[in-house]
Simulated scan of single mutants.
Amino acid sequence: MNQLGAGIAITGVGSAKPETVLDNHHLSQMVETSDEWIQTRTGIRQRRLLDAQGSLSEMASAAAHKAMAMAGLSPVNLDLIILATSTADDLFGSACQIQASLGASNAVAFDLTAACSGFVFGMVTAAQFIRTGVYRNVLLIGADVLSRWVDWSDRCTCVLFGDGAGAVVMQANQQDRLLGFEIRSDGNQNGSLKLAYDARTQEIVKGVTVSRGCYQPITMNGKEVYRFAVQKVPEVIDKALFWANLTTDQVDWLVLHQANQRILDAVAQRLKIPSEKVLTNLSNYGNTSAASIPLVLDEGVQQGKIKPGDIIAASGFGAGLTWGSAIFQWGR
């Protein structure tokens, strides 16, 4: 047990993307759509897809290695691994597979499911372990392979989603760089976006039936999700900034879940944050769910945009429905 009241620093970030690219012209050969239609309504030009032989665990491990290398942290020094995902390789969870792959023999590992809000929820969860002094070195991974659960004949959803993984290292620190957060849920709107269980009745002996498990493809009410995001995301960012005792003028970068360019633009406009402070890679990767925020964060760091001490307002939102925001400074 470490000393109570430890601060938190985000000291490393990394990402991994599949090699296969599916652009809008490919999609126009599959469903009735066009590059112009997709870009106008979503801002997406292409997305990456994990091939049939690939695994989420491998992709997540690749992102994790890069994050740990940047942080200068050996896997054996990890205390905790949190995998934010909705598409684990194993329904019992994939975090332990990643722990074994990394050689993180001293780390506890578990999955966390909060869909596209998963990375923010994972950051808040990791923070509690560090702040209470239980752990010092935490690896947080956001990874999803939504292509496994897309109906490729449904043009309303198949144009949106891609695959990817991103990771950050969070460490106990003398100065606290996690400045504020707020997370929310509303199960009353669950039907707006879901990947639902599809029960198939099976009689195992006469008079005794059980359901044989499988899942339906992703379904979404686009108008409701847009309305929800545009209203709730600015509110939750404002609340997190309030807890951080900051204003939007003090935010260096807005890093939103990459769902739809219209949502990103509307949220930034409501917060009065100029477009040059909004980081996005949506056009290249589509909606990668829990991976989207760390993917953007990694690109911002690698491109030299995000510098040590910069204040980042991050927000995830999606199925559940769930949404949340974390305000943090990059670096030690």
Rank of each mutant, 00 (worst) to 15 (best):
L241P: 05
I273F: 01
V208F: 01
R212S: 15
K206M: 09
A244G: 08
K239E: 06
Q231G: 03
L271V: 00
S211D: 13
V230P: 08
I237T: 10
Q258K: 04
R262C: 05
R200G: 08
Q258A: 11
A240L: 10
V236G: 04
C214V: 09
Q202A: 09
R262A: 05
N260E: 02
G222S: 12
Q231H: 13
G207L: 12
T201K: 07
F242R: 12
P234I: 14
Q216V: 08
Y226M: 02
F228W: 04
T219C: 09
A266F: 03
A199M: 03
Q216R: 15
W243F: 14
Q258R: 09
A229Y: 01
P234V: 11
L271C: 04
I237G: 01
L256C: 03
C214R: 12
L241K: 05
V267N: 00
Q216Y: 14
R212A: 13
Q269C: 07
F228L: 14
N221P: 05
V236H: 02
I204T: 15
N245P: 05
E235N: 05
A259M: 02
N245R: 13
L264C: 04
S211V: 06
V236A: 04
G222H: 10
F242I: 04
Q231V: 13
W243M: 12
V210C: 11
I273Q: 06
V251K: 02
N260C: 07
T247C: 00
E235D: 10
M220F: 12
Q258C: 11
A240D: 00
T219H: 10
D249Q: 15
Q258D: 00
E224F: 04
Q202C: 08
V236I: 15
D238K: 14
G222F: 13
A268F: 11
Q258S: 12
V230D: 09
L254N: 01
V251F: 01
V230H: 02
K232P: 03
K239T: 15
